[in-house]
């Protein structure tokens, strides 16, 4: 006993953490595909094997994310907004007051109380503009690995003004810019700024309290170019913790404890 498992069944990846106390002992992710529960259970099995643990060592399995209801073997489920708040508040040692979460198909801004509970939140509606899916699409059109986006955007002096964060319209805009010979670095920097503006709009007039910090998490938060663009647009420091793609799974694991 003593180990807790958190599973975040998202739209593009299933993330798992193995937690002891408040410490992440093991984490891994797998791309989302049909048969989500089987994929998640494979992750669990892998974790137990690697750590030499048995079923009896697991205190609870908590599931979150869009696919949480598919995890019939989960001990409990947590909505992903609350799990995100719980996880980041704990990992930031209580400093976090606002979370910007960029997921595979959604964009969330979550404001926290000083006790780490959800005060309020905003989320994009059923459009994937400015989400992880948008970056994936851009990487395909630019024929550039997503992992290089951060470093490449640093090479551009000025971002290009892009009109759209729409997954569909951005394609024609990027293709047209490439045809005009605009360097990829400028386009990528422009992409980061257009997403950052979208986040700023979602954040609205919300003020982050002086005694708290604003954090970015979710898969795209590992992109340093996006982080810089966000700081430019919001005119404030935005923090990113190590392994930001696992925050929600971690929050689910420790929820209710």
């Amino acid at each position: 006993m003593g180990f807790k498992i958190g599973l975040d069944l998202g739209s593009t990846a299933i993330k798992m953490v193995l937690v002891k106390g408040d410490k992440v002992e093991w984490s891994r992710l797998v791309a989302t595909a049909p048969g989500q529960e089987a994929l998640a259970l494979d992750l669990v099995k892998g974790a137990l094997t690697e750590r030499g643990l048995g079923d009896g060592d697991i205190e609870n399995i908590a599931a979150t994310g869009y696919g949480k209801k598919l995890m019939t073997s989960a001990g409990h489920t947590v909505d992903e907004i609350s799990a995100n708040a719980t996880g980041l508040f704990k990992l930031s040692s209580g400093r976090c007051r606002t979370i910007i979460n960029i997921g595979g198909q959604d964009l969330k801004v979550i404001n926290l109380t000083e006790k780490g509970k959800v005060a309020d939140f905003k989320m994009n509606d059923k459009c994937a503009a400015g989400t992880g899916r948008f970056f994936e699409q851009a990487a395909r059109i630019l024929d550039t690995p997503l992992e290089s986006f951060g470093e490449m955007s640093k090479l551009a002096d000025e971002p290009l003004e892009l009109n759209s964060t729409c997954v569909v319209f951005a394609e024609s805009e990027i293709v047209s810019l490439l045809a005009k010979g605009v360097p990829k670095e400028r386009i990528i920097k422009g992409l980061h700024h257009s997403v950052a503006r979208r986040v700023a709009n979602l954040l609205g007039r919300h003020k982050v309290p002086n005694d708290g910090d604003i954090y970015l998490d979710g898969g795209p938060s590992q992109n340093v170019g996006l982080l810089e663009a966000l700081e430019d647009e919001l005119l404030m420091e935005v923090k990113v913790l190590p392994n930001p793609q696992y925050t929600v799974a971690f929050g689910a694991a420790i929820s209710g404890y």
Binding site: D79, M123, D125
Partner: peptide, 13 residues
């Protein structure tokens, strides 16, 4: 589904 996600979080809050 996305409406449900928000409402579940609202319920938690």
């Amino acid at each position: 589904q996305t409406l449900l996600t928000r409402l579940e979080a609202f319920r938690s809050a």
